[in-house]
């Protein structure tokens, strides 16, 4: 029983596993997963690896600090690295605290914005 619950919880918490490794982000049935490489730290330039589901195309990316009202001091660039796979270079968190990733994705003729909250501690 316990095992079954754990399995169910595991499945529910990782709906994006089918797209690729990373932290799942979803809204309105659209899904992607992202990973930060190397590990995020204030003042370190990192890349964000994105895997999208169901042929979703990644068209835009930004990172913002909503409580401060500012974004990045650097302009990330998106490169497609394979089917549903993208690498975003040039992300540098210049302050600790709550950040938000913004992914603009296209599904057919509609574009949607997915957001993911993350906290940079150090």
């Amino acid at each position: 029983m316990k095992l079954a619950l754990a399995l169910a919880a595991g499945l529910a918490a990782t709906p994006a596993l089918a797209c690729g490794p990373g932290i799942p982000v979803s809204a309105d049935g659209l899904q992607l997963a992202y990973r930060i490489e190397p590990a995020a730290a204030v003042g370190r330039m990192v890349a964000v690896e994105v895997a999208t589901c169901d042929g979703l195309a990644l068209e835009g990316f930004d990172a913002r600090m909503p409580i401060h009202g500012h974004g990045l001091n650097y302009r990330p660039r998106i490169a497609a690295t394979g089917p549903g796979a993208y690498r975003i270079e040039g992300v540098l968190f210049h302050m600790p605290g709550p950040w938000q990733f913004v992914f603009d994705v296209r599904a057919g003729e509609t574009t949607r914005r997915l957001t993911a909250d993350l906290t940079i501690r150090r």
Binding site: E59, G60, R75
Partner: peptide, 12 residues
Amino acid sequence: NDHAADGRVDPA
């Protein structure tokens, strides 16, 4: 700054 950079207009 989100609508344009380096003389290029953002697609959206």
